[in-house]
């Protein structure tokens, strides 16, 4: 069977599913000043697991919106205007849904797969680790 390290090169999904892989990728993104994209990606996964009947869930949705989408952060810049509007409206109407960040997460993931992930696989951080 493939080692965890070999799987990192197969897909972003494998890399982020491995503790060491996610940690190393995070270090790389910190250096590239775009670690927010990864934190947002994990926040979307965490949000999807939350209980919609828990009052904390609305607060977390608001926190994600405020931290990553409302401002001019790197995440906000990579999202389509319609995606941001949809999330803004959902929060305004307090219509919280487990899938409300799915589209935004997909957009961020695609950008990561095309750019940061490819750069990571040729970075010195990765090569030194290997």
């Amino acid at each position: 069977p493939d080692s965890p390290l070999a799987r990192w090169t197969k897909s972003l999904h494998f890399l982020l599913g491995d503790q060491d892989g996610a940690h190393l990728f995070r270090t790389f993104l910190e250096r590239e000043k775009c670690v927010d994209t990864l934190d947002f990606w994990f926040a979307c996964n965490g949000f999807r697991q939350m209980d919609l009947n828990d009052t904390k869930t609305l607060r977390v949705a608001k926190a994600i919106f405020k931290r990553y989408i409302e401002n001019n952060s790197i995440v906000a810049k990579q999202l389509k205007p319609a995606t941001k509007t949809y999330i803004r409206d959902s929060i305004k109407k307090q219509q919280i849904d487990s899938a409300m960040f799915d589209q935004a997460q997909t957009e961020i993931q695609s950008t990561m797969e095309e750019n940061a992930y490819q750069m990571f696989l040729t970075s010195d951080i990765y090569l030194e680790y290997v």
Binding site: P4, L16, G17, D18, Q19, D20, G21, A22, D39, F42, A43, C44, N45, G46, F47, Q49, M50, K56, R59, V60, K62, A63, I64, K66, R67
Partner: peptide, 20 residues
């Protein structure tokens, strides 16, 4: 009560991969 930042941090941490 947790602050929004704390809640967000917990949400992110909960989704991170655990030890192999």
């Amino acid at each position: 009560m947790d602050s929004e930042d704390d809640l967000l941090q917990k949400c992110i941490t909960s989704a991170m991969p655990k030890q192999r």
